[in-house]
Design a protein around this nucleic acid. Structure first.
Lengths: 227, 227
DNA sequence: CACGCGAATATTGAATTCATAATTACTTTT
DNA sequence: AAAAGTAATTATGAATTCAATATTCGCGTG
């Protein structure tokens, strides 16, 4: 059931540019020089420009007519709005997952859950995040709704670059773990309404927004653009 | 606050092709000939191919490597999944709208609502749909979440071509109107939770799905593609 | 007559070229 | 010397050209 991934040059280039943005090698607001990237990737302008257009529709960059491309500048509101949306999508994924999920899938998630608890016990932040992420992805996958997954993935792409730079206060963290306990319970009861509600309210989102204040648009003001 | 709409050639072409798909002048599964469209629009292949790439990322067409483009074939599941998603987004829009909406905006929606009731009384289907749509769009706009609106709009694009061909049974219709009464009440109380819930459950979505059975993929099998 | 092979044709993928708009540098004027 | 206007340069937008991959058609063979 794995999709045939088409490897067009433009798609390759788009992904590479996406990585550059994610890793901060292209700063928000920074002008993207076509020639420079052509040299870097060793391709002509045609596939590169196609990639830019695709990235623009994906919301990672913006195209100014006759004036080139710029990495989208994430504002606080921007990110918050995206989180609100993603929370709603996760809520839906929970509801749907309960309708479709198999016992095997549930026990796989239970295993992840237990692993995560262990990382919480030892306060091992990075692996905790990793497994946490896997749990949410597993639920999303169990929703059996491709367009939902696709949409979620796109939104995640947009904010990736600011998403993995957060700190956890003990208080928030313990609450997040409690949320996950409730999630597991709801999932094992296949109570979609409840799981959806928990996921929508899951404070992971709110935490992240709260701790983002410092990350957004303070660096990389090389090319200030008055909106 | 109106955005500067950039009129690049590729964007223009993409919109035009989108219209062709919406109006059924390009059938689902039908192969899209680059040359043919170039002649039709009077542009060279460069902007046309850029447009195709954009439309592919927007989910309207699919690109087969070295084998051209095809209009995406909407399956029943496909459409149902999209409706599920849109319902969730509308739910969110309701919650957010209640937080931000002004009295003026509410009374504007109230006006639309009353107009709609009038069309219901006279069983005037098309104008009813029109105003109905305006109401939902007004709530969406009041959500004050651009990415939400953008995402919703994209999903709507994908299923537009099958969306406006539905019949209303009296029973469904009266229920839909009742839903709208409850929506107005929740909105005027600014009860976000409630409005969100109503919008998520609003049977408009379910009706549409139910009545779509006949529309999906029965015609236009000119170029059957075995998935 | 069906099937398979191979040349001819057409179509897509990508690079190059040409045209046009924006930016920069320079000159001129006040 | 500062500002404005103009020429030179650079970058973007779009068409054309070249290359590689499919598709079609005709032929021969079983």
């Amino acid at each position: 059931m794995t999709k045939i991934l088409q490897r067009n040059l433009y798609r390759e280039v788009a992904d590479r540019i996406g990585e550059l943005i994610e890793h901060g090698e292209l700063s928000p607001g920074e002008r993207i020089s076509e020639k420079q990237l052509c040299d870097r990737f060793g391709v002509s302008r045609t596939p590169l420009r196609e990639a830019l257009k695709v990235l623009a529709t994906e919301g990672l960059i913006e195209l100014l007519p006759n004036r080139g491309a710029r990495v989208v500048r994430l504002t606080m509101k921007n990110v918050k709005d995206t989180y609100d949306l993603m929370a709603a999508l996760e809520g839906l994924s929970g509801e749907l997952a309960c309708q479709h999920i198999t016992d095997a899938e549930i026990s796989a998630i239970r295993k992840l859950h237990n692993t995560m608890l262990e990382y919480y016990r030892t306060r091992d932040l990075m692996p905790y995040f990793q497994v946490n992420r896997q749990i949410h992805e597993a639920i999303l996958a169990a929703s059996n709704n491709e367009i939902l997954q696709e949409t979620y993935s796109n939104l995640n792409q947009r904010i990736k670059r600011v998403r993995y730079s957060k700190k956890m206060t003990e208080r928030y963290w313990s609450q997040a773990v409690k949320d996950h306990e409730n999630m597991m319970a709801a999932l094992e009861k296949r109570d979609g309404k409840l799981l959806g509600q928990i996921l929508r309210d899951h404070l992971c989102n709110k935490i992240e927004v709260a701790t983002l204040a410092g990350v957004i648009e303070t660096e990389g003001d090389k090319q200030a653009v008055s909106a």
